[in-house]
């Protein structure tokens, strides 16, 4: 056994992978299979699962309903499709805005003096020391109708003798978007920074030397070489935004319900684990499809992950 451990590289790899493997099988693969099984069951009146094979839950998500008001036996109810669509577009918008905000900042940090670079990175990471939920609460404090922002504006308006009606900021889609951007910005900055930092100065000089002005250097050299960072960041941002429910719960209230909230409510409030499971799987499949097409076009950002 020891001899084998010393000489067999593949065996060493297996040993090293075992702890994670146990963890992943026990807490990811098996629960996933259970979720799939439950999603095909039906809910008993007391909130338990009656196992079986029914596509009822999936039909419900896709809006095919048999409880119609106009007397037809089958009709379309877009409620859940709207929630899915909202989640998808929010994740998309968040990712695009986060890229647009993170790229210039990462570029600035990557090109700054090495001694200052660490300070900037430190500042990017500081918010992550605070709990995710607490940071969302901080945004609640800011955005509330009686919150900090309205308070400050109201105070200034009062000084100027103007009449001020507090802005309705919290419990709007905009509030959720702001919260998401805030929460996930560092996960875009870090990979983009890493890929930009790896571009050596002589490459910029070579481009200039060959006749490229700064703008064309950016388009032809900087941007392509930093794409792995953008791709890695996109994966790190898009997937969690699709599934998270805390931000929308606290900043969106009942106004902005995402798939994450739907799933949470099915398990806790509505006590319908079968429908919750089906929604979970749909979310997963949807995320996988988007990620699949995205990574097929842009790769996984392997260079950045291996760096």
């Amino acid at each position: 056994m020891l001899k084998r451990l010393r000489e067999n590289k593949a065996f060493q790899g297996t040993i090293l992978a075992i702890p994670t493997l146990i963890f992943m099988v026990g807490l990811l693969i098996i629960p996933l299979i259970l979720t799939a099984i439950i999603s095909f069951g039906t809910r008993s009146p007391d909130g338990n699962v009656i196992y079986g094979f029914s596509l009822h839950n999936y039909a419900r998500i896709f809006g095919i309903s048999s409880e119609c008001q106009n007397g037809k036996s089958i009709c379309f109810d877009p409620l859940y499709m709207q929630i899915l669509g909202r989640s998808l577009s929010l994740a998309f918008n968040t990712t695009v805005l986060v890229i647009l905000m993170a790229y210039p900042l990462s570029y600035f940090i990557a090109r700054s003096h090495p001694r200052r670079r660490n300070t900037f990175l430190f500042m990017v990471l500081v918010p992550l020391w605070t709990n995710f939920v607490i940071r969302v609460y901080a945004w609640m404090m800011l955005l509330r109708t009686q919150g900090v922002i309205n308070g400050v504006i109201g105070w200034v308006a009062g000084l100027l003798g103007l009449h001020f009606v507090p802005l309705e900021m919290i419990y709007t889609p905009g509030a959720v978007l702001v919260g998401m951007i805030y929460e996930f910005l560092p996960f875009m900055i870090l990979p983009i920074f890493t890929s930009l930092e790896k571009i050596e100065t002589p490459l910029y000089e070579a481009a200039a030397d060959l006749g490229a002005n700064p703008f064309r250097t950016f388009l032809r050299v900087t941007l392509p070489l930093s794409m792995p960072g953008v791709v890695a960041g996109t994966i790190l941002v898009f997937i969690p935004v699709m599934g998270t429910f805390i931000v929308s719960d606290l900043l969106g209230g009942k106004q902005v319900i995402l798939v994450g909230n739907l799933i949470q409510r099915q398990f806790l409030d509505a006590r319908d684990p079968t429908f919750g499971s089906a929604a979970s799987l749909i979310l997963m499949v949807m995320t996988l499809i988007v990620t699949y097409f995205y990574t097929r076009k842009f790769g996984f950002g392997e260079e950045i992950i291996s760096a």
Binding site: P202, A206, A208, D209, G211, N213, V221, L225
Partner: peptide, 20 residues
């Protein structure tokens, strides 16, 4: 005059080839 407007070209010590 910036480098991209000069009638000279450089061979760099590190080659500085565009890897992509």
């Amino acid at each position: 005059t910036p480098p991209f407007k000069r009638p000279v070209n450089t061979v760099f010590q590190s080659y500085a080839l565009f890897q992509h």
